[in-house]
């Protein structure tokens, strides 16, 4: 990838007060799926410091274009055309190059293309709902899609998910592995959603809200939203004592 020395430092511990706890009763499914015993804290070993690498050759031409990657020739997905772009950074603010970003989302009507999905909104024959991209040397990524619609879900009798895009991110170490969701600036449903509400702090929730980015909008074509993602940072190993042959 580059000629810098390999990254071998352990990752900063996760801030568990910033991250959502496992047990969050207003999000009912978490009740039976949350570990109840304390997690065992462990300084990283090689098993967590290392991680798989995905090459740019993995990515097909339309992988980052959800408007067209499932559409019939000459057709495109229905909905508000948007560009989602940003950088994958670590906690030191350094761009994470070569990060694999996978996204999935509902269509413009809030309907997913999935066997278990029962919402009455129609499928869009030209929209599959997934895409992927690998970050460049600065950690930047971008993809094109349609803005997903909000949808109702069985939790309370009248719970609606705000418009959102699911993100799965691979950094350089397996301990950085993260799945999250991106929300859209100005959506009133964000502050009513029990899944968003699993995150304790308002400022942490705001970290997942992408602002409208007119500077990156393509006039007469697509609006842009900017979404930066922060993965765990690594400790420096410069002055660390290392075992012989380790």
């Amino acid at each position: 990838m580059d000629n810098k020395s390999p990254e071998t430092g352990a990752f900063f511990p996760r801030d568990r007060a910033w991250q959502p706890p496992a047990y969050t009763p207003p999000y009912k499914t978490s009740v039976l799926r949350s570990p109840q015993k304390a997690l065992l804290s462990l300084n990283n070993t090689l098993s967590e410091i290392t991680g798989p690498v995905f090459g740019h050759d993995l990515i097909g031409e339309l992988d980052n274009d959800l408007i067209h990657n499932f559409a019939k020739a000459g057709e495109s997905a229905i909905g508000e055309r948007i560009i989602v772009h940003g950088r994958v950074l670590d906690e030191r603010g350094k761009g994470v190059s070569g990060a694999l970003v996978e996204v999935w989302q509902a269509n413009a009507g809030g309907r997913y293309r999935h066997k278990n999905e029962s919402y009455l909104a129609p499928l869009d024959p030209n929209f599959g709902g997934c895409g992927r991209v690998i970050t460049d040397d600065d950690g930047a990524y971008r993809f094109r899609t349609i803005k997903p619609g909000p949808y109702p879900w069985p939790n309370g009798v009248n719970d609606w998910r705000p418009s959102h895009i699911h993100f799965s991110i691979f950094g350089h170490g397996f301990a950085q592995r993260l799945i999250t969701q991106m929300y859209f600036e100005g959506d009133p449903l964000i502050w009513k959603c029990p899944i968003v509400g699993t995150i304790p702090e308002k400022s942490a929730i705001e970290q997942l809200i992408a602002p409208l980015d007119l500077a990156n909008t393509i006039p007469m074509d697509a609006r842009a939203y900017k979404f930066d993602i922060v993965l765990r940072g690594r400790r420096s190993t410069l002055f660390e004592n290392r075992m012989e042959g380790n």
Partner: peptide, 18 residues
């Protein structure tokens, strides 16, 4: 130092993306 992005559930439709 920045804060790690908060995690959110993968949800029931994780298969679409993964």
């Amino acid at each position: 130092l920045m804060k790690e992005s908060p995690s959110q559930t993968a949800g029931p439709y994780v298969h679409i993306g993964c």
